[in-house]
Design a protein around this nucleic acid. Structure first.
Lengths: 216, 216
DNA sequence: TTTTAATCGAGAAAAATATATCGAGAAATT
DNA sequence: AATTTCTCGATATATTTTTCTCGATTAAAA
């Protein structure tokens, strides 16, 4: 068979690759040409075998004794994650969190380019943040279709999230980056990636509670 | 042995519990008194056995045919996560993301209470957000010790994150909620919970890239 | 040139996590 | 009262993810 089998990539792998990239970028700036899996693993407190197996997914092969070529590995990871070219995105919910995301220029390094924002508050429409225009939410379906936008970012309150998700999907959006602490009910062909801050805090507060209790 | 054995709780469990809580809170508002694991599982697209096992960690036992008592389960989860009383927290980095977090009142429902913020920019010192005062970063060590703060939130750029973490630890902070996309080098008794937005985006952009390629 | 040290990658093993099976109990229905 | 339906929780199984072992390879040091 000639077609390359696209093996399924576990999510934990996808979550570690950007962390490798962060280290690699720093090493490149320092002028370091080669890096071993051991070094990456030590910096991130991981197992070196795990790092090697993760890298294997990107198709890069290393060399004994010296490891991997830094620039080559950077390119491979970026390409693997589709970070070598940005995908346009819409953001809905220009509240404090939405504004913060709009104001952060770094996401262009992570494969997305926010080209417009939307809000239900008419007073916010017409404004811009970092040259990104803010429209009234009513404009979303039409603009989304016309501009062929594939990624939607939800930063509205939980109560409004599902309604926004439906609008996005009607507008042709295929992947949703959801910050609302609620389950989105969407067709299963829609990709949903949640950022659940409460779920992150639960880990922190539980562990802290336990560690304080253990001291007693 | 009389001392109750504190079983280790897997992180995936801790991350699901707040999601159950979200549903339970909604059900309670709707006046629903009982809920089955099946119902929770269906809403979150999980397995009902998994939901039951997760709930088991909180110590609550259900009843055949009817399931679990909503208010009792809410209380048990909140107590389990230490969300029945808030822990004071400091935030460092009053940029756009830091400001967004300061501006969001909801974290008090998730076990933390931000009582002060810090920034290296002297112009920001003296201001307040939602009545939370902003100080210059130099004040952190002293205030942290005096107020016995245990949680630190890092919302500074990656390059400054480790320096801030060290200051926090010197100030007696035991748990760090880190939003900087960088590995914190801290003693292992310090609890670190990362919110890595790039790691979340990598999952989204990779899946989207694959789904587009699969269509061809 | 020989030896040593560091690394990769294949495969095996272990650990963690998720899912399936099923008997028993409780409520509703017949 | 008997039957049906729904659910729990104990146990077993399956799957996923991580870690360990080890021979082969490369570069540097002796």
């Amino acid at each position: 068979m000639t077609t390359k089998e696209i093996k399924h990539v576990p999510e934990p792998v996808l979550r570690r690759l950007p962390r490798y990239l962060q280290i690699l970028t720093r090493l490149k700036e320092e002028g370091i040409k080669e890096v071993s899996s051991t070094r990456i693993a030590d910096e991130l407190r991981l197992d070196s075998t795990q790092v090697r197996k993760d890298i294997e997914f990107t198709g890069i092969i290393g060399k004994p004794k010296t490891g991997f070529l830094v620039p080559q590995l950077i390119h491979a990871i970026e390409s693997f994650l589709n970070w070598d070219n940005v995908t346009d995105a819409f953001l809905v919910g220009a509240g404090s969190l939405g504004t913060a995301i709009l104001g952060y220029p770094g996401f262009n390094n992570y494969g997305i380019n926010i080209i417009a924002a939307f809000d239900s508050n008419p007073e916010k429409a017409g404004g811009t943040i970092r040259n990104i225009p803010i429209f009234h939410i009513d404009k979303l379906p039409d603009l989304s279709h016309r501009m062929h936008v594939h990624i939607g970012i939800i930063t509205v309150p939980a109560a409004a999230a599902n309604e926004v998700a439906t609008m996005m999907i009607d507008g042709g959006i295929k992947a949703i980056w959801n910050f609302a602490p609620v389950q989105l009910r969407v067709p299963k062909e829609i990709i949903v990636e949640n950022v659940l801050l409460h779920a992150s805090l639960s880990v922190l507060t539980r562990k802290l509670g336990q560690s304080i209790q253990d001291q007693k």
